[in-house]
Design a binder for these strands. Sequence first.
DNA 1: TTCGGTGCAAAGGGTTTGCAACCTG
DNA 2: CAGGTTGCAAACCCTTTGCACCGAA
Lengths: 143, 143
Amino acid sequence: MKTNIEQARERMKASGFKMTPKRLDLLSYLFEVNRYVSAREVAEALRTSHPSLSYDTIYRNLNDFSEIDLLEVTELDGEMKYRAACASGHHHHHLICRICGKTETLNVCPMEWISPAQETGFEVEDHKFEIYGRCANCQRLTS
Amino acid sequence: MKTNIEQARERMKASGFKMTPKRLDLLSYLFEVNRYVSAREVAEALRTSHPSLSYDTIYRNLNDFSEIDLLEVTELDGEMKYRAACASGHHHHHLICRICGKTETLNVCPMEWISPAQETGFEVEDHKFEIYGRCANCQRLTS
DNA sequence: TTCGGTGCAAAGGGTTTGCAACCTG
DNA sequence: CAGGTTGCAAACCCTTTGCACCGAA
């Protein structure tokens, strides 16, 4: 079974991207934390190993990786958050903890029940379904 | 039957807000366009009648009105968008046209079918369910 | 008259861009 | 070696804030 990093390498090569030490560590970090993080969190996490890593590079990489579906993106609390794409590769949604960004996967998609949206001629392109709250762990810490 | 503006007046007074000419025109505009608009769109729409209307005032009003549920807010394409609250006052979701911002109301809420999210101890606070695409009219204009 | 509303100017925060130097494949 | 990648610095855009003045009730 291929590791996440190996899969990432393949997809990057297939899209004309090169692997660099910073990209490798950025991806490793995202695979490891396994939750939605902001660019700032990425910067802080990699500051030790890459003191010169700048925000422009972080944003460029996060955006590039999102475009080849290595990452999932969502707009939360006024900023973009990114996370390693879920391995399954199949369509799903998340419960997202507002405090730590951790997610739980929801295996149902409401769109499956809402096909009759067509009557008005609206052409559906995509959708967003996210549930926000506090995960069990953050409830303990903050209440 | 009360007009939208009359209802707005009442709710504002009840919350300690005063009505001003600018607020009146801002609300009238939002009731009229009946879709999600950005602060910039508001500014442009009211520039003629209120040349001195500034962004700080627009944002302050949009935020104040949102807090008393006169407006609905969503984060879309990297910015906040606002629209007059749907009259029904009862929970619902929207199909949103990416081009003109016009919406169609969806009378179902997927949360009604997803109660078993509790097993992991996740505490649900709220959720977002939006369908994006092109309305019938914008399909004609752009294809 | 009182308390809320507004303009002004400035700052804030997240994100993007142009360009020259650098490095991967 | 070629073409992608990065740092730097600056710019951008959306949004918020402090303060003095203005205006609705």
